[in-house]
Amino acid sequence: MIRDITIGQYYPGDSWVHRLDPRLKIVAALVFIVTLFVIRDFIGYAMAALALAVTIAISRVPLGFMLRGLKAIFVIIVFTFTLNMFMTDGETLFDIGPLTVTREGLYNALFMGTRLVLLIMGSSLLTLTTKPIRLTDGMESLMKPFGALGLPSHELAMMMTIALRFIPTLLEETDKIMKAQSARGADFESGSVIRRARNLVPILVPLFISAFRIAQELAMAMEARCYRGGEGRTRLHELRFRARDAAAAALGALFIALVALERVFADTIYGFLHII
């Protein structure tokens, strides 16, 4: 189950999309999401879907892998779809028992469903093609201008870096502690809710102690390696805006322009389609 969630998972690769500046990718993902909310009709979505499909193709992330990520939020998609289908007033199409499906409802349901699917796929493409640590670097760099407003961009990024590093360690530790306590007859599966919560104490106490020990030892190791905050620090991977990033940004701008044009001239386009 947990394995199926591809949001936040990295798909190793060396494609053009993988190599883009993480800052650009973060901004692009944000812009893409905003665009999805600006778009008003299916022609717009068709354009967004096309843009996304091209990007996915370039990234060489298998479509099956992306769809696995959708599986995890399948319930939410179905829920949104059903809610919109039945809860919109308008011209009745047909009835299912006491529920009425309207023309507008069906339209809304398809519209919202498409938006959600594009939204999830667009944002997961960001994490699928960007290592978490590069994502952190990108965010740190993007947040830097807000430092003047008191946003501790370096500290936040360092916290994320360390979290990424130690999540697997703590998961392993949890597994080990659970096994060790159940070898002493601890039972985590039966009893009332309160009883079960109480039974977690033998896991949580050692886990917290481990986490504190890690924190203490890591802090000492970082100090020993001359860590003194973000000031005066350089980076091995300097984020550099390269030609390919400029090209990608231009393509992004083109996409935005097309979506905007489509929105402004939607009526004309419809009229044109009508004539045909």
């Binding site: 530790e173 080990k176 502690i177 096994k179 060790a180 306590q181 159940s182 070898a183 002493r184 007859g185 039972d187 104490v201 033998p202 106490v205 050692p206 102690i209 481990s210």
Partner: peptide, 20 residues
């Protein structure tokens, strides 16, 4: 398995990390 676990004592590596 409950009866079994009573009869088999299993001590993991660094068992002191499980004291609570």
């Amino acid at each position: 398995l409950t009866g079994l676990r009573r009869r088999i004592g299993l001590l993991f590596q660094y068992p002191e990390y499980q004291l609570f």
